[in-house]
Design a protein around this nucleic acid. Structure first.
Lengths: 140, 140
DNA sequence: TTAATAAAAGATAAAAATATCTTTATATCT
DNA sequence: AGATATAAAGATATTTTTATCTTTTATTAA
């Protein structure tokens, strides 16, 4: 459904949302341990998130990553949109047809529409902060 | 959700179910045109389906592929199981965590369970034949 | 103002997924 | 039997995704 990189991004962002703020930054090393993603890989992912303005970074000594409350206040769906460049994966034809006439000929159309609503509900209802603080031991 | 190859397989199998029987075989060339997959690629996919006993093949002149009614009488879910080697994609953690404690800590658990039921319903309700003959112009 | 620390950026590598090509085996028609 | 059509099998190539490494730039504490 999501690429591995996007899933890494989601994991990272949920953790950062739950465990950082303007005065409490998280470094790559610590984060890498916490969410079990290799340091170099995670670094790339974080760079990407930063460029997309989904998280903040601060260079130099005592630097690290964090999120502002504004940034914590968006839906996961937004994050996915940024990470995947679109809602492609949510919208794509289940059978991979280029010209799937979804609206009236695909045998799965109606059912697929249901799934898509469910997915949007999952990703689009709670804000990141909400989601991530609900369960604190999620990453244990 | 499914790999590209699996989706090719599903497309092929739905078409073959709708358009073949013991006395009416379909060659790779024709099929390739019908469902818009390159010939070499499709050939590989069909070989795979044959090995898994999901379709029949007949070599030599006037050979080709077809399905018996027995073969048309299974659920798409079976096909997916064979093609993906498991229900991995349906069951995997949405966030790609190795040790997702799905049952009580994942923030998405309940919602994800819903989605999975939906998916199973889509793939597990109708037989292939049912699905594919419902709409004949699906591939137009 | 210098040393240390941390992220950014870009280059490279490795692995996995897709796609294609070539040869071989098999069946059937004439 | 010989020619032809067709799938099977295996080797190879290409592309995409994932992962890593190296160098640079910025920050700040001492």
């Amino acid at each position: 459904m999501l690429s591995k990189t996007s899933r890494y991004g989601v994991r990272a962002i949920l953790y950062i949302a739950a465990n950082s703020n303007e005065n409490r930054l998280i470094g790559v090393r610590d984060l890498s341990v916490a969410i079990e993603i290799s340091q170099p890989m995670l670094a790339k992912v974080l760079q990407h998130l930063t460029k997309k303005n989904l998280i903040q970074s601060k260079k130099g000594r005592n630097g690290g990553y964090y999120m502002t409350s504004l940034q914590k206040n968006i839906h996961l769906l937004e994050v996915i949109r940024e990470l995947e460049q679109s809602e492609y994966l949510i919208n794509a034809c289940l059978l991979g047809q280029k010209h799937c006439k979804t609206y009236d000929q695909c045998p799965y159309h109606d059912k697929v529409m249901l799934i898509r609503s469910e997915l949007r509900a999952i990703y689009g209802t709670d804000t990141i902060l909400n989601t991530s603080t609900k369960i604190n031991n999620f990453f244990l």
